[in-house]
């Protein structure tokens, strides 16, 4: 098996780990970190595809993922700071419950 195909499997494993993190963790910071893992796995899949076909386009799409991830993290962490200032916690279950009341 080519290393690029194995890299695709690695990307799948990392992406699933990120999805599990988003579902399981209750802390907002950890959820954002899991989203970051998913971004990174998607980029790895792009680079593996680029190596598989010998074209530079996949690598270019990884370069495009970088600013998207940076902007997402900047806004997500700003929202996390706002949420912490309002609710005094980052526990998503507690925040959801206090919103229901």
């Amino acid at each position: 098996m080519l290393p690029a195909e194995q890299a695709l499997i690695l990307a799948a494993i990392l992406f699933v780990t990120g999805v599990i993190g988003v579902i399981v963790r209750r802390n907002l910071i950890f959820v954002l970190m899991s989203v970051e893992i998913m971004f990174n796995a998607a980029g790895l899949a792009f680079v593996a595809g680029s190596a598989l076909h010998g074209q530079p386009d996949g690598q270019i799409f990884f370069i495009f993922i970088l600013p998207v991830a940076a902007a997402e993290v900047a806004i997500g962490l700003a929202l996390a700071v706002l949420v912490f200032q309002k609710y005094r916690t980052l526990d998503l279950w507690t925040i959801a419950r206090s919103r229901e009341e």
Binding site: L66, P67, A70, A71, E72, A74, I75, A78
Partner: peptide, 13 residues
């Protein structure tokens, strides 16, 4: 477009 995304991220932050 990625420059635009970064600008929007900065403004949003």
């Amino acid at each position: 477009l990625s420059a635009l995304v970064l600008l929007i991220g900065a403004i949003g932050g």
